[in-house]
Design a protein around this nucleic acid. Sequence first.
DNA 1: GTTAGTGCAAAGGCTTTGCACTTCA
DNA 2: TGAAGTGCAAAGCCTTTGCACTAAC
Lengths: 131, 131
Amino acid sequence: MAKKKQIGQRQSRQRDTILQAIGEADGPLLAQTIHEQAKRRVPNLGIATVYRTIKLLLEHQRIQPVVLSDGQTRYELVGLGHHHHFRCRVCERVYDLPGCMLSISDGAQLPGGFQVEAHEVTLIGVCPGCA
Amino acid sequence: MAKKKQIGQRQSRQRDTILQAIGEADGPLLAQTIHEQAKRRVPNLGIATVYRTIKLLLEHQRIQPVVLSDGQTRYELVGLGHHHHFRCRVCERVYDLPGCMLSISDGAQLPGGFQVEAHEVTLIGVCPGCA
DNA sequence: GTTAGTGCAAAGGCTTTGCACTTCA
DNA sequence: TGAAGTGCAAAGCCTTTGCACTAAC
């Protein structure tokens, strides 16, 4: 059952670095950003390795995809608890927001017979750094 | 100022049909779905024309893109009023939901200095047809 | 030594663009 | 007729895959 650190069958500097980059961020990251971050530590890291590692991490449920209204897919660690996202329209960065501000709960039934199982909320605006 | 029906400089059966397909839907549509719908009336309609028309309609602010967590871009008419979306995890169709169920309003300031200007909510679950 | 993991380059899927043909005004 | 609009096919962008090489174990 041990699988806290090990991702594939072998340990590799590339994978450790990629996972570290995702874990150190204060919000979900683009594949491209992960690549740039990880390259600082593993200079000749290929983008294909980033995508392969992302796929592996998704399969192992260590990370999850976050797709917001800009259409780009970002990735964040699982186990962050229930939270939502804030996207800065200036710098396009995405931040985690703890807690929930939705007035309807999962499990509710909407008029018309729509059964709600989950929800997503994104706030859009300007982040402190860009204000 | 007149531009209620006219999209480009000339009228064309293709554009009218594409706009009609988007307008008749009960939720935002994929480019592919728009193409399929419109092809019923204009059989040899090319996908490039669909994308060009979408682009034109976006520029003219007649439609707007809707990107949900499945990563696919859909399009809906503007002027539907404030609303959110429901995505069925079974059939992957997206429906409009009137009203708002968010407990924080645009214009609010979040702890940390995040200025909220807009928001998006998506409910995920099972639609009446798939239940 | 085996073979998982990697980098490069080619291939795929969706969207955009170039170009010659069609059609509206 | 003149240019906007269209269809086809080629090109682009991001992501995935094939293949030979590298490096964990």
